[in-house]
Computed example of a mutant assay.
Amino acid sequence: MSSKQGGKLKPLKQPKSDKKEYDEADLANIQKKKEEEKALKELRAKASQKGGFGGAGLKKSGKK
């Protein structure tokens, strides 16, 4: 039983998608999203430099 179809089948190739044409509203939304992502990234970097929040949290007493 020698078959050429042994093993996994190769997936069919997907056709290359055409470049999408955006109007001004779409371009504005894309730009706005990029700016928001950049701002979030900067805030995360700032927060990671400072460390934890100032509160000490719950303290356990030494009593048993």
Rank of each mutant, 00 (worst) to 15 (best):
K20D: 07
A28D: 10
E42L: 06
K13D: 10
K16C: 01
G7Y: 03
K63W: 06
P15T: 12
F53H: 12
K59W: 02
G62Q: 09
S48T: 14
L43A: 13
K10T: 06
S48L: 15
R44L: 05
Q5C: 09
K8R: 15
L40G: 08
G6K: 15
K60A: 13
K32P: 00
L58K: 12
S61R: 06
G7K: 04
S2N: 12
K41G: 03
K59T: 05
F53P: 06
E35S: 10
D18I: 09
D23C: 05
Q14V: 08
N29D: 10
K63A: 13
K60L: 12
G57C: 05
A28G: 01
E35M: 10
E37Q: 10
S61M: 03
K38V: 07
G54D: 13
K41T: 09
L27M: 09
G7R: 01
G52I: 03
S61H: 01
K34C: 00
E36V: 05
G52L: 09
S3W: 02
P11M: 02
K46D: 10
Q49Y: 02
G52W: 03
L58R: 08
I30W: 00
G7M: 01
K64C: 01
S2M: 09
E21N: 11
G7V: 05
R44N: 13
Q49H: 08
E24A: 09
K41Q: 14
A28P: 00
E21C: 04
A28Q: 12
L27S: 01
A39N: 07
N29A: 13
M1S: 09
G62S: 14
K63Q: 07
E21Y: 08
E35A: 14
I30G: 00
E36D: 12
K50L: 15
K59P: 00
G55E: 07
K32E: 11
K34W: 04
K34L: 10
K20P: 11
K46C: 01
L58Y: 04
D23G: 08
K16E: 12
Y22N: 02
K33D: 12
P15A: 15
G7E: 07
L9R: 14
E37K: 11
A28E: 13
Q5R: 14
K10C: 03
Q31G: 04
L40R: 15
D18G: 06
K50G: 02
A28L: 10
A47D: 08
A25N: 08
L58H: 08
E36Y: 01
G7L: 03
L43W: 03
D18W: 05
Q31I: 04
K34G: 02
D26Y: 02
E36I: 07
K63E: 14
A45G: 01
K59Y: 02
L9C: 13
Q14Y: 01
E42R: 05
Y22W: 13
K63H: 09
Q49E: 15
E35P: 00
K41C: 01
Y22E: 07
L9D: 12
S3N: 11
A47M: 09
G54E: 05
K32Q: 07
A56L: 11
A28M: 04
L27A: 01
K41H: 06
K59S: 10
L12K: 12
N29C: 03
P15S: 14
S48I: 08
K60M: 06
E35C: 00
G51Y: 11
K16G: 08
F53M: 13
A39E: 13
Q5Y: 12
I30C: 00
G6D: 14
F53W: 09
